[in-house]
Structures are given as C-alpha cells and as structure tokens.
C-alpha cells in the first residue's frame, strides 16, 4: 500500500472530479481515489504492483491530463 499524488489539468467542474474518481477506481491495484477540484490533485491509494501508466490512461480516457506524478 502506498499513496501517490497526481496533478491533473483540465478539471473545471464537480462532475469532472467525480468522473476521474470513477475512472481511476476501475484501474486494477487502485484501492481509493480522492480528487480535489480545488487543488487539481488526485490522491490515490494503490498496491505496490499498480501500473502508473494505466492510471494516467484512465484519466486521459475521461478527458483530462496528468501533468505530474509524485509518490
């Protein structure tokens, strides 16, 4: 279990945040996601074996861009 922090660009409304939460939660290895619209950050609880590219892709799929990943 570890926490990663994503900086996401392009969110402009509340449903954006909930869409990203929904999409990232579906990635295998992701346990919990909280998206903060105000800080453009997503806090993701993940297993060690999670593929970060998958998370980025999931965010991209619903129309937003991950600009930074921090562990």
């Amino acid at each position: 279990m570890k926490k990663i922090k994503l900086t996401i660009e392009g969110m402009h409304c509340a449903s954006c945040a909930s869409n990203i939460e929904r999409a990232v939660k579906k990635v295998s290895g992701v346990n919990e996601v909280v998206v903060s619209l105000m800080t453009n950050k997503a806090f993701v609880d993940v297993d060690d074996k999670v593929n970060k590219e998958e998370i980025k892709k999931a965010v991209g799929k619903v129309g937003y861009k991950v600009v930074d990943v921090e562990e």
């Binding site: 402009h12 409304c13 449903s15 954006c16 869409n19 929904r22 999409a23 619903v62 129309g63």
Partner: peptide
C-alpha cells in the same frame, strides 16, 4: 463540446 459529447458516448457524463 468535445468533452461533453465524449462524456455522453462513454457514459462519463459531465457538466459539458
């Protein structure tokens, strides 16, 4: 427009 339409087709509806 793009975000909105994409949202409708992927069932990730949003404000747009």
């Amino acid at each position: 427009i793009r975000q909105g339409i994409k949202g409708i087709f992927t069932f990730y509806f949003n404000m747009d």
